[in-house]
Amino acid sequence: MWQAFVRWFHKWSSPKWFYEMSRPWSFWLGWLALICIATALVWGLAFSPVERLQGNSYRIIFLHVPSAFLSQAIYMTIAVAGAIGLVWRIKLAFYAAKQCIPIGMSMAILALATGAIWGKPTWGAWWVWDARLTSMLILLLLYLGLWALHNAMERAESGDRAAAILALVGVVNIPIIKFSVNWWNTLHQPATLKVTEAAPMHMSMLIPLLLSIFGFYLAFLAWMLMRTRLEILDREKKARWAQQEIRNLEAQ
């Protein structure tokens, strides 16, 4: 049982095998994600009822919540992949971790931007030092650090390892940061800005929201697969199969 798992693991951790096997996946996952997100948005934007307190402005949650979820989940993914790379010396994990960084960063930016747009009608200001927005800003800074460190290293393998260590430090720190920011927030602001924690959601809002979150996760998987496959080609470009594949792609 265990040996079968190890064999399976080794097979999948080979960049070439992964490249071949993942070929159809990013295509199908991408389409599925598109369908989910499109359905969720049409449903959420056009058919869900108007919210009692916020009117139509609440509809931005169909973008805001999934991107905020994902940006945190992706950071965890990076840390886990980095740890796998460091402990078992699996190159593929490093490749995936590296390519997750820009995705996570764009999700954090999307979450911040939608949060600011939402904040204007709700709080009357583009930016409020709300606990969640502040945590998200710090998460974005963590992503920037990872990306900058990766790019600063001359040797890609050093970047992989250094970023993995930093991601591990960050992932230990994130709960503490969240706790401290929440605490700082309650200390400095009276509890008047709790609009977002309104009454339990109506089903007609909840279902498109869940669908949108699901679609975002699928889109992340598709996007990550695509980027990781390109990273594999780039990093393995000395291998014959990779050169062959690059020629094929160029011919198309």
């Binding site: 650090g145 600063a152 260590i165 930093l166 720190n173 940061i177 401290s180 605490w183 700082w184």
Partner: peptide, 27 residues
């Protein structure tokens, strides 16, 4: 330690450390 081999490590070091340091500043 992460930036020691880099020629312009100083600024990068700030970017890496500052977010981790938020709890300390707050408390």
């Amino acid at each position: 330690a992460l930036t020691v081999g880099l020629r312009k490590g100083g600024l990068l070091l700030t970017i890496l450390i500052m977010p981790l340091f938020v709890p300390v500043i707050i408390f």
